[in-house]
Amino acid sequence: MTFTQAELDYLATQHIGRLATVAPDGQVQNNPTNFFVDADTGTIVIGGGALGRSKKFRNVQRGSTVAFVVDDLATVDPWAPRGIEIRGRAVALTDQEPPVPGMSREVIRITPTRIVSWGLDGPRASRAV
């Protein structure tokens, strides 16, 4: 398993993350997006209404590295941030079964190479996978 059970449990409660990609000219783009965890393959799947026409999709098609962050505040008093950063290899896929009806047939699949999590099940954890 790529993700710990605590990470999978946390990701299951969240609906939005931020995907950072890099354009060929070196410009970084970071956008909120929905996501789905494929626990069987240990990957993250990004989908959308017109994902194939997006800059993030084109960046990934051109070989961009990616970082995907999901985070929130468990409480504000006391201050308790928690989250997960997933760095990895991404592929832009076409003609895929949409993760949710009504989404486009393009998806971005992220295979983690490094996972950093905090506030989920003890001290901050960082590991290569």
Rank of each mutant, 00 (worst) to 15 (best):
A39F: 06
K55L: 05
V69S: 15
A50G: 00
Q61I: 05
I44E: 08
G49E: 06
T41E: 11
R58Q: 13
S64D: 10
V69L: 14
F68A: 07
F57N: 06
L51G: 05
G63F: 12
V37K: 10
T43P: 03
D38E: 11
R58M: 09
V28A: 14
T41G: 03
V66L: 11
I44F: 10
V70D: 03
D40W: 10
G63W: 14
Q61E: 15
S64F: 14
V37F: 05
V28T: 13
G52F: 07
T41I: 04
T41D: 14
V69C: 15
I46A: 02
R62M: 14
L51Q: 06
G49M: 11
A50F: 09
A67K: 08
D40V: 10
A50W: 10
I46L: 05
I46Q: 03
N59I: 07
V70H: 08
V60H: 13
A67P: 12
G48Y: 01
K56H: 05
N34E: 12
A50S: 13
D40L: 04
R53Y: 08
K55C: 09
D40I: 02
V60Q: 04
V66E: 13
A50T: 09
Q27G: 04
Q29C: 04
G48H: 02
V45Y: 12
V37R: 07
G52C: 00
G42P: 07
T43I: 06
G48P: 01
F57I: 02
S64C: 13
N30I: 15
V37M: 04
Q61R: 14
K55G: 12
A67D: 08
G63R: 13
S64I: 15
K55V: 06
K56D: 01
V69I: 15
R53C: 05
V60N: 09
P32G: 01
L51I: 00
I46R: 00
R53M: 06
T41L: 04
T65F: 09
Q27D: 07
G52R: 09
G48K: 04
R62G: 10
L51C: 04
Q27S: 11
R62F: 13
F57D: 01
V69E: 15
G47C: 01
V37E: 07
V66F: 02
S54E: 02
I44K: 06
Q29E: 09
K55R: 15
S54H: 08
A39H: 09
F36L: 12
V60E: 11
Q61W: 10
F36Q: 12
K56G: 02
V70A: 03
Q61C: 12
S64Y: 14
G52K: 03
T41C: 04
V45K: 02
N34G: 12
A39I: 04
K55I: 09
A67T: 13
S54A: 01
F35L: 02
V66H: 10
F57L: 00
Q27T: 14
S54T: 15
F57K: 03
